[in-house]
Amino acid sequence: MGPLPKFGTFSGFAFLCYAAYSTVNYRNELKMKGVEFDGVPFEVLLQCILGTIACLWGGLQMSGELLPIKSEMNDQCPEQLDFRGDFISLNHRGICLPPKSIE
């Protein structure tokens, strides 16, 4: 992994921060002009989208290889998965075994 993903994530965050900063500035400007605020300008939207994509890409690159989604049940044998405690049957061959002595 080169320095590129880190740079991507960093610049993505920088874009987002800059977008927030310019929105605040824009609103202040509008307030001074006395105009109603009804949405951010197009450049800021573009900055947001670019920033998000850069963050997403950098994060995915840095997190390493993606693994398939796997069930964690395969370390359990069928007997274990098939045991239902509420339906436990007490009529089994254990009856014929000698009782285990406790020391």
């Binding site: 405690g85 436990i88 007490l90 254990g94 009856i95 075994l97 009782p99 285990k100």
Partner: peptide, 9 residues
């Protein structure tokens, strides 16, 4: 208790 019943103890 359940385990003991299961082993006839």
């Amino acid at each position: 208790c359940v385990a003991a019943l299961d082993c006839q103890d």
